[in-house]
Write a protein that binds this DNA or RNA. Structure first.
Lengths: 247, 247
DNA sequence: TGCATCTTTTTTGTCCGACAATCCGACATA
DNA sequence: TATGTCGGATTGTCGGACAAAAAAGATGCA
């Protein structure tokens, strides 16, 4: 009956949020350049004609967004670009709260990691290769040290992501990779996965060196599939949330 | 001279940040349940023995993180789970600021979208199929209306993502999809891509209905490759940043 | 001039107190 | 049951204050 009229609910945005938005637009449009320093709080408060407290709350919003920051131990407020780690952490906590399952994470990984390997085959520089080879050596040396192995495996995949030179890909896979940590841990501590892991990693690096895209992709795929088998052999439930990501 | 000793720089975290962290840990550990309502600002200020202004700044941090929020037009503060749109927007602005190229976005998309199609072939419910068919009908009806076509295409891919039931995948592809908007726009306004698009979409939905995973993946792949050709035919530079993603 | 040290001015982080708006629940009334 | 009224609780915003630390300026010296 009252559906006859469409009522737009009246609602006022708090000032701290419109202030934040005002600053944000000035930043993304480039009016305030990235890297430049913002005016003092009092100055901004005067410009926007609000109290300093209000401006401070607005700044907190942008700060958590990662688009403004202070250098450690400094007072000046700079315009910055959100860090990868920054975004990744946010994504990660969101995924933890949503109780995303290992199954979901894995399905995403098997899509992203081979793609990263493919791109890396095309874009990896000598520096990247060197870093990867160092990682291989370390893996070989710590083949029986479960803990180091865990770290090294994670590092390996991050190096591949770095080498692929695709920042969108990096941003997408990082939070997921970090969520695998506990699962990795379980697998490594129950299975002797070191050998298989090293073989796969080695093959991948070899393929990158030869710029052999197909092989790199294929071994990465195998590697991820292998991980899944490891998870199942370790009696982990793929359909359960992969929680507990508090470093 | 004083280099003889390694001085760990003394640095105090501002109170508003430790307060935020205190609340955050209580939330992610489950001590404060998701969906429950937090104490009033004054109450929290008393508990943590800080001023209300400080607590308010802490709340702004969590608020922007999306883990606390107020119901629209309400005063009570609830513990919430970050929305997809929420995270997506953050990611998007980050990508804009980093000036990520179309090339990078596309490479990520061609990894994610077929994966989404694959999962959708297994998990799509009748409701999902119905929504997709409605989208197809609308596309057919608006085959010449470039603007609607753009919206509908975006919607189609989001429906696929919904249907795949993989939240990790959804979280990963959403920000990237939204960044394609301007490129889509350019393609649609210069090329007559409607027919090809409709064919691909139809084939995909048919495959989903038949639970034919292979076909769904293959057509999705073709569809994305096709988009790339469209971009090139429209004379867009894949290696230029895809900026201008304001909502 | 360039550099190191001292001084002054800004600026931030934190506190206090205040007040209008308005949401929320209780209660009374028709 | 639905509506009108009231009072307490809370939020958003403001103003002012102050110590500590950083930034900017001034000074002296090589």
């Amino acid at each position: 009956m009252s559906d006859k009229y469409a009522w737009a609910p009246i609602r006022t945005e708090p000032a701290y949020r419109v202030a934040a938005q005002a600053l944000r637009t000035r930043i993304v449009t480039g009016e305030i350049a990235v890297g430049s320093v913002l005016p003092s709080e009092t100055a901004m408060a005067e410009m926007l004609e609000v109290n300093r407290s209000t401006i401070r709350e607005a700044i907190r919003l942008l700060e958590e967004n990662g688009i403004v920051a202070r250098k450690p131990g400094g007072k000046k407020l700079f315009v910055t670009i959100p860090t990868r780690a920054d975004l990744s952490e946010r994504m990660t906590t969101a995924m933890v709260l949503q109780e995303i399952t290992l199954e979901e994470l894995w399905a995403t990984m098997i899509a992203l990691e081979p793609a990263a390997a493919a791109a890396a085959a095309g874009n990896a520089t000598d520096a990247h290769i060197t870093a990867l080879e160092a990682n291989l050596k370390a893996t070989e040396a710590n083949i029986d040290n479960k803990e180091s192995l865990l770290e090294l495996d994670l590092e390996f995949h991050e190096l591949i992501a770095d080498a692929c030179g695709n920042r969108a890909l990096q941003l997408s896979r990082e939070p997921i990779g970090s969520l695998f940590y506990p699962a990795f841990d379980a697998v490594f501590s129950r299975l002797n996965a070191g050998e298989r892991l090293l073989v796969a990693h080695t093959r991948i690096v070899d393929a990158l060196k030869a710029r052999d895209r197909e092989t790199a992709v294929e071994w990465m795929r195998k590697h991820i599939v292998d991980f899944r088998r490891g998870v199942e052999l370790a009696n982990l439930d793929m359909s359960r949330p992969a929680k507990g990501a508090s470093h």
